[in-house]
């Protein structure tokens, strides 16, 4: 097999974890051959990539690359892949990574397989990729001279290697069309409470909560546990909570130590966002709800009675 090229995205001088997972995949596919890494603009992120499996690092430098421009990134990736005659191009399965790989594939009239969890070399090369936020897997064949794919987050562990990579800076050729879509402004987020994605405990409510007002009981329990509040899509489309609270395939993916799901049936798309939870406690009046086969613990009953009772019991246990 010919060379492998891996797009290494970075923020603030640090390579993204998923990009390092991409390097690990590249190493597996080319155990003795070259693994090229492409870093765009972020010079600090080039250091140490040899220790993650890269044999050669290409640093694209261009005056216009200060602002993010996905088409420029795609052109650089495509041009470099062509120059290196790469057989496989790997990117991180993040929003930024997927859009760059997709744009590069569109430029070159090549297929693109997003969010792969496994890749089998061969003719044709075959991949396993995520559908439905990971609730379903697809095995697919890539019929192309060059396989373009992204690696799903956490599918393949980043693997230390003992190599040292050479770093070769280059100035890509870019024109106005490549820079037409670029970041023109950045708005800072207003700092909120506990972030859902990073919370150690999440208390969520679903349709069973019944109303926006019903969430006071959920918030009270979350407050006592220092937890973030989450919800299901049934709740956001009803307008009871903002979409920023939604857990799931089209919401936030969470990975708390404990997830307390109240009045949530456990649809696959909801669990696609919650399955990273270490332990799950379901509170549901239906002992047959699908969530019962995803949860570790359950209380069967009306959440409007059970949730306040748990809050009261926590206060009692704390002697308050």
């Amino acid at each position: 097999m010919g060379p492998v090229l891996v797009l290494v995205t970075a923020s603030g001088g640090v390579a993204d974890e998923v990009a390092l997972q991409g390097l690990a995949l590249g190493r597996r596919l080319a155990p003795s051959g070259p693994v090229h890494a492409l870093v765009i603009a972020d010079e600090a992120a080039t250091t140490g990539l040899g220790a993650w499996g890269a044999t050669q690092v290409h640093l694209a430098r261009h005056a216009a690359l200060g602002a993010q421009a996905p088409d420029a990134a795609a052109r650089i990736l495509d041009d470099l892949a062509t120059q290196l005659e790469a057989d496989i191009v790997i990117g991180p399965g993040t929003e930024a990574g997927n859009t760059i790989l997709a744009r590069a594939a569109a430029r070159a009239d090549l297929p693109f397989a997003a969010n792969c969890t496994a890749v089998r070399a061969g003719n044709p090369l075959t991949v396993t990729r995520l559908r439905w936020g990971g609730s379903l897997l697809e095995e697919a064949a890539i019929h192309a001279a060059r396989a373009m794919l992204s690696v799903a987050p956490h599918a393949i562990p980043a693997t230390p290697a003992d190599g040292v990579a050479t770093i070769a800076p280059f100035t890509p050729e870019l024109d106005d069309a490549d820079l037409a879509v670029r970041v023109v402004d950045r708005v800072a987020a207003v700092a909120g409470g506990v972030s859902l994605a990073e919370a150690k405990v999440v208390v969520s409510g679903g349709r069973g909560v019944g109303s926006a007002d019903g969430f006071k009981q959920i918030e009270e329990l979350a407050g006592l546990l220092g937890a973030a509040v989450g919800c299901s899509r049934a709740v956001t489309i009803a307008g009871w909570r903002s979409h920023t609270d939604q857990v799931g395939q089209t919401g936030t993916k969470i990975a708390p130590n404990l997830y307390i799901a109240c009045g949530i049936s456990g649809a696959t798309q909801h669990m696609a966002g919650a399955k990273g939870s270490r332990k799950i406690l379901a509170i549901n009046k239906d002992a047959e709800a699908p969530i019962m086969s995803a949860a570790d613990y359950a209380v069967i009953g009306d959440l409007h009675q059970v949730v306040p009772a748990i809050s009261a019991e926590i206060r009692r246990a704390r002697g308050a």
């Binding site: 086969s293 069967i300 009772a309």
Partner: peptide, 16 residues
């Protein structure tokens, strides 16, 4: 999995 049932209704609070 099969969830371990901690109890039914508010009486389950201490077990939780």
């Amino acid at each position: 999995k099969q969830a371990e049932i901690l109890g039914r209704g508010p009486e389950a609070a201490p077990a939780v």
